[in-house]
Structure formats: C-alpha cells, structure tokens
Design a protein around this nucleic acid. Structure first.
Length: 554
RNA sequence: UGCCCGAUAGUAUAAUGGUAGUACGACAGUUUUUGGUACUGUUUGUCUUGGUUCGAAUCCAGGUCGGGCAACCA
C-alpha cells in the first residue's frame, strides 16, 4: 500500500483546495449535450469527474446541457444515461440546464438592470462585422446604447414571442476591444421558436452555452468544473458572469481531450458515418462510441483502466489504440472462458481412429483460473481444423501440421500428418493423419514432445455460427488531420463476415453477456442480431499474434 | 501576424532545483498442451539559444514548432 500514486494536475489542485480548507468537499458534474451518443473520449471525462469524487469526498451530478433544442433529443438522453451506468458510475443528481431556464432568465434581467446587457437587433452579419477581428477592435452596434428600460421591454417581448427567430439577441456589454473575442459583447440569449425536449413550447428564447453553463455550475455549487481545452478562452467570461451576478464561484479547469489512432472522435463526424451509412449505426462495433465498444465486447473495467492509464494533461495527444486493446486483452485474458471454434475450416481425417467411436475430452475452461474447471467436448475421427494450421510446404519455424509433421490436438491426441487431398483447382480439401492412442491428454505415455498445439471441432457435433471480424475503421492514424475529407481514409475492409464457422456443441447455449475466448482466435461475444437458431458472434479483439509477424517477414 | 494554451523515447505519462523513471509499442530470448498468458533483456527522450544556480526537464528571457479563439453550436 506504500505505492504512491502520482497525482495529475487536477488532483493536486483539489488536494490543495481541501488542505487549505477552501472546500470541505468537492462537487463535479458531467455535462453532455444530448445531441449524439457518448464515445470513448467522453469516457475519459466521465472517469475523471466521477473518479475524482470517489477518490476525494464529494459527489458528481449528471447535467444535460440542453440549451439548443434544435439538435437535442430524448433518444440521446436515454443512451447517455445507459452508457454512464454501464461504465459503472452513479450520479448524485440528474439535472438539466433547462431546469434552470427561469433562474437564468432572471439573471439576464439582472444584467440588463445593471446596464451590463442589451438587446441588439442588428443582423448576424452586422454583429459579426462590428465585432472586428482578433487584430482589429470591434465597434458598437446601434443597439448598444439603448436604455435599460428599453432593453427590459424588448427582452420581455422576445420572451413573449413577439419576434421571429433571428430578429434580435441579448448581448452582454463587456468590452468590444478585448483581445479575447469571447469578451466582445457575447450573445447570451437568442430567439428560437423550437420545441424543447423537456420544456416543450414554454420558451422561445434560449440561453447560449456561455450564459448557461457557468450559471448551472454555480446553482449546483460545482467546485471544480472540468472541461476540455477549447473552452480556455471562455474562462474569463465564465468568471465575469459569476462576478457580476455575485453567485457561487464555481471554477473552470481544462484538460486535453482524448484522441485515438485510426478513428475520429467528433460527434459531427461520427454522425456523418451513421447518416451516410458507412456504419450500421451509433452502436456499430467499429465505432468508438461507448455503445459500439459495448456491442463489440469491450468491458467497462478495461475502458476504466484505459482512462486511468492515459492520464490527464493539458497537452494535445493522440493515444495509440493498441493501449486500449492491451487493456482489453489484459482483462479478458483473466475472465474469458475458453472455447474452440474453427473459422476457416478444412477436414482432418484420423485414418486409424474407429469411425463409429465418440470420445469425450475434458477441456480446460481457463488456464488462468484454476477454479474454472473443464468441460466435456466430443471427439471423433472427423475433425474441423483451421485451414491456416496446415501447410503443404512448411516454411522455416513452422510447427503446425505439414506432411510428416506431428502436432497436438488441444486436450486430445498427438496426430501425425500422413497426407492430404486436393480438388481440381488445387485447394486442399482434406488432411489425413494418424493419431497416437497413448498420447491422450492427461495420460500421455508417448514420450513425444510437440511444438504445436491446434484447436479442433468434431464434424458431426459442430454447430454453425456467423462470425463478424472487425478491423480498424480508418486506414490513416489520424484521419481528421489528413488533407481533404476524412471519409476518404475509411478502411473499406473493416468488416469481414464469416457466414459459417464451426463451434464446439456447447456453444449452442452461449450466454449473451459472456465474452468467450475462441482459443488461438481472439475474444468473441454474441451480437444482438443473434437468434437461438442463427448465432452471430462479434470478434472483440484478436489475440496477440506473434506468428503473423514472423510470417510477414518471410 | 492580436490574445490564449502547450512542448520529456514511436505513442502516452512521471520526475515539483539533486541519479531522466514507468506503461504501451517494437526487437531478442525463457517458459508454455493457445505462436495466447507469464517472465527476462534490448532499443529510443528533456524543442532551441542564452541566463540564474554548486547543480535546471524543472526557475527567468528570447526564439522555434504545434494547437485554440472572430457560430444566434456546445
């Protein structure tokens, strides 16, 4: 227990805040906008916000940042809640920025009364051009000099629905010459005659992010409001509103968002992949969404472990997806029951094994777990084995089947290859072998040592299943950074369907929640498309394959 | 050419003025009835130039490079 955990910069700030007595406990929030599904980048934020209040005394709210009704839907609210729960976190309160619309409206009125906000009826183009540029200061629009009474009257009328969308906005009156563009009289309310997923048609004006987020934090007494780097320039504005309104001083802290190699991580791009049907949906197993990873077979444990390992920093980063896969394999290796499945079958005929005999082999369920036990698997003279486990002319370092070579059939016998047959096209159709009766697993008296062990499934007992293999969705490490359209870099072979693989018979009763290891082939989980008569498995991830590398060298 | 943020092995992440360490990856090997797992070893790094200091990845100054900011998006 003496192992010291290194603190990230947020933990250091929090420990200091707790030590100095600035706070007795901390309060964080996870603030998604319900306009898309959560992805692995959000998982980093979720693990951060909830992790902090697990580690230190405090609690975390789930707050939907639903201030833009034109993009937000209840479907997204539901998926977000499901994903957070699945990741293993429980929020203290479920809040919505829309819960605070009345209070936020009053705050706007207060700002007007203090002469710190005004109604502007300039056109969007006018507002933009009067804002100046980063190097040229802005100029006041005519509305800026309106009286408090007039502003109050107009804002009231905006709320009452007297004006169409875009006719006018409410702006904070700050500093049109600020080098920070966000301080150049930012818009804080706009007119949108749009039905809201929660408040319905009660409102036709909605606060902007900058006039809702900090206020919501403050209302909830959030002590540490954690967001991503692009909000850094918003912080002075965040603080300005809190100061002018004299409300609870929440503080904003920023960290670098997660990026992963060979994928994209923006909701806009992910939505494009869905809408343009490059994938089957938000939960397509190739998507970096939480729902996609879940369907693919990822475990919450492995995702949490990954988020812990990537760390929290302020520098931009792109994490190698192999780290995610490492975390997954590490977890699955410990917990996944082993099974045998042949994905690309050829027949192995044991010429000296009685044709009418069926033996039951006891096969280990998980060599990593002594308590996992064994299961019976039927063995006959006709077996399915992987096509790639036989080589007519073996290469160097090959220690699977080849003419004259011996190999062990996992948890069964050692066999010697005696020959093979081909069809007219020259494809191997059958491999012939003899088995060594004295080499049975557990009572092997053959004295032989074999270098290779392969898996098998008895032909008459095999059950069929569809298996879906996945590869990375993009060919480029960082498709978003490539020239042109990111979709030009999509990997067109990211999904490979094996319509008919052969599985050991017990898999007919496969459990939908269990991630299985198909020995030597990777980890697999039942897909939601699966039915009792037509099993469908997703390959979660392959096993590390050092032979594949060796084979490439040749 | 305004303001803001950042820069440590291939990718991430520590070292908080005192031996540049860890993980993933890669490479090599040992063990193995999964070419899996486990274990061992190897490889590669402080953006740059000055300054402060007995001593700088760390503090200071200049530069370089990367990123962000001018939505009635969040």
């Amino acid at each position: 227990m003496s192992e010291e955990k290194r603190l990230n910069f947020l933990e250091e700030i929090i420990e200091s805040d707790l030590e100095t007595g600035k706070y007795d406990s901390i309060q964080t929030r996870f603030p998604p906008e319900p306009n898309g599904y959560l992805h692995i980048g959000h998982a980093k934020s979720i693990c951060l916000n909830f992790g902090l209040t697990q580690r230190y005394k405090g609690s975390t709210n789930l707050r939907f940042d639903d201030t833009n009704p034109s993009t937000e839907e209840t479907e997204y609210v539901d998926s977000i809640k499901e994903d957070i729960r699945w990741l293993g976190f429980t929020w203290a309160n479920e809040f919505y920025a829309s819960d605070y619309f009345d209070r936020i409206y009053s705050m706007a009125v207060e700002l007007i009364e203090k002469g710190l906000a005004f109604v502007d009826d300039s056109t969007p183009d006018e507002i933009a051009s009067f804002k100046g540029t980063p190097t040229v200061p802005g100029k006041p629009t005519p509305g800026r000099s309106r009286s408090v009474a007039e502003n109050l009257r107009l804002f009231e009328a905006m709320k009452a629905g007297k004006y169409p969308d875009g006719a006018m906005v409410l702006r904070a009156k700050i500093d049109l010459a600020s080098p920070n563009m966000h301080m150049r009289d930012p818009i804080i309310y706009r007119i949108k005659h749009t039905h809201h997923h929660r408040t319905g048609d009660k409102w036709c004006i909605y606060p902007m992010y900058d006039f809702a987020h900090g206020q919501s934090d403050s209302i909830e007494h959030i002590t540490h409001s954690i967001c991503t780097l692009e909000f850094i320039p918003h912080r002075p504005l965040y603080d300005w509103f809190i100061e002018q309104l004299g409300i609870f001083p929440s503080h904003q802290y920023e960290f670098a968002r997660l990026n992963l190699t060979y994928t994209v991580m923006s909701k806009r791009k992910l939505l494009q992949l869905v809408n343009e049907q490059y994938v089957s949906g938000w939960d397509d197993p190739r998507m970096p969404t939480i729902s996609g990873l879940r369907r693919r077979g990822y475990t919450p444990e492995s995702i949490r472990d990954f988020c812990e390992r990537v760390g929290i920093q302020k520098r931009e980063n792109i994490i190698d997806v192999s780290l995610l896969e490492f975390c997954l394999r590490e977890h699955l290796n410990k917990v996944a029951p082993r099974r045998m499945a042949v994905l690309d079958p050829i027949k192995l005929i044991l010429t000296n094994y009685p044709a009418d005999q069926v033996e039951t082999m006891e096969v280990e369920n998980n060599p990593e777990d002594p308590n996992a036990g064994t299961r019976p698997v039927p063995f006959t003279y006709q077996l399915w084995i992987e096509r790639e486990d036989f080589m007519e002319i073996p290469s160097k370092k090959w220690f699977r089947l080849a003419p004259g070579a011996i190999v062990r059939l996992k948890n069964a016998f050692i066999v010697r290859c005696e020959g093979f047959s081909k069809d007219e096209a020259g494809n191997i159709t059958e491999v012939h072998a003899t088995y060594l009766p004295e080499s049975r697993s557990g009572k092997d008296t053959s004295g032989l040592t074999v270098k290779g062990t392969i898996h098998w499934v008895s032909v008459p007992h095999a059950i069929k299943a569809e298996i879906r293999l996945y590869d990375r969705l993009f060919r480029s490490e960082n498709p978003a950074a490539e020239e042109g359209d990111f979709k030009d870099h999509i990997n067109l072979n990211s999904l490979q369907i094996i319509p008919e693989a052969y599985l050991e018979p017990g898999m007919a009763l496969a459990d939908a929640q269990t991630r299985y290891q198909f020995i030597r082939k990777g980890y697999f989980i039942l897909d939601k498309d699966s039915t009792p008569g037509q099993l469908v498995f997703n390959q979660t991830v392959t096993l590390k394959d050092t032979w594949a590398k060796e084979a490439k060298k040749i």
